[in-house]
């Protein structure tokens, strides 16, 4: 297991999101989101379909342009800490018939850590082996990814993130289409990472499992409903606010903005 990084002590703010607004084709999908998460948090982002959950983590990682606001990691801008962040995209976002082996996919994590032209070293090999062992895929290392089941595919993605040995993990629906055994193994792994001081943010769908799996929750529906420790924010009242339908006037205005091609955050 990766060791506790000395810079990320518990209770320090690991992630700060401030006034984040994101638009698709001029249509705002996230409005002025503000929250912080402490180092070592195992947090879920929950909300109804179209609430902007994936958009939020993509925006934090700089994969989408921001209309306003910023995200800071360990008090630094994204650019300076990029290599310490690992992204686990939705499983459906890639073509699993692509001719590439499990080991090659995991080795992407090493490329992400070391940069383009560094030659691969013994440390890389060890990290890849360890990552494969952590997700129990050692026996599959040389298989083509097209031969894997859904749960195995998800674990390959997680192994790639582990091989990068980052301080932050952003996972987009890691439990979608995954069997029960794989889900349990992934949750145990995420808890170990969190215990080791890593900050883990997961886009999640299953409200039932939130209290058992996560320490923190971010409730989202186009705007932030609330964010904080699960036992404080995961209340029926907040859930009703999150899932009780969209703010109809807000989405109407967003439609208007898109229709007229106006970027609401730019004068």
């Amino acid at each position: 297991m990766p060791t506790l990084p000395d810079k990320a002590q518990p209770n320090t703010v690991a992630l700060e999101v401030h006034d984040l607004t994101v638009s698709y084709n001029k249509r705002p999908v996230l409005w002025g989101v503000d929250f912080t998460l402490p180092a070592g948090a195992l947090a879920c982002i929950v909300g109804p379909n179209g609430a902007g959950k994936s958009t939020l983590i993509k925006a934090i990682m700089g994969l989408l342009p921001l209309s306003s606001g910023y995200a800071e990691l360990l008090g630094k801008s994204l650019q300076t800490v990029r290599r310490q962040i690992s992204y686990v995209p939705q499983r459906e976002s890639v073509d699993w018939d692509f001719p590439i082996s499990v080991r090659e996919v995991v080795s992407m994590g090493r490329l992400a850590r070391r940069g383009l032209f560094a030659r691969s070293t013994e440390a890389d090999r060890v990290a890849i082996d360890q990552a494969l062992a952590d997700v129990d895929l050692t026996a599959y290392a040389n298989r083509q990814i097209s031969q894997l089941s859904g749960g195995q595919q998800q674990r390959v993605f997680i192994a790639r993130a582990l091989a990068q040995q980052p301080d932050f993990f952003f996972l987009d629906e890691p439990f979608a289409g995954v069997d029960v055994a794989s889900e349990a193994a992934i949750v145990a792994l995420l808890k170990r990472l969190s215990a080791a001081g890593k900050t883990v943010v997961v886009v999640h769908h299953d409200l039932q499992t939130v209290p058992a799996y996560f320490s923190h929750a971010v409730l989202l529906n186009g705007r932030l409903i609330t964010a904080g420790p699960v036992e404080q924010v995961f209340t029926n009242e907040n859930l009703a606010a999150t899932y009780g339908g969209k703010l109809t006037i807000l989405s109407k205005v967003a439609q208007e903005a898109a229709g007229r091609g106006i970027d609401i955050r730019k004068p």
């Binding site: 700089g62 690992s86 890639v94």
Partner: peptide, 19 residues
């Protein structure tokens, strides 16, 4: 070769790592 191959497989991941 490797960066091109990896980009063609999963662009979002490489982009998130700043490539």
């Amino acid at each position: 070769y490797k960066p091109i191959l990896f980009t063609l497989f999963d662009e979002a991941y490489l982009r998130s790592a700043g490539f």
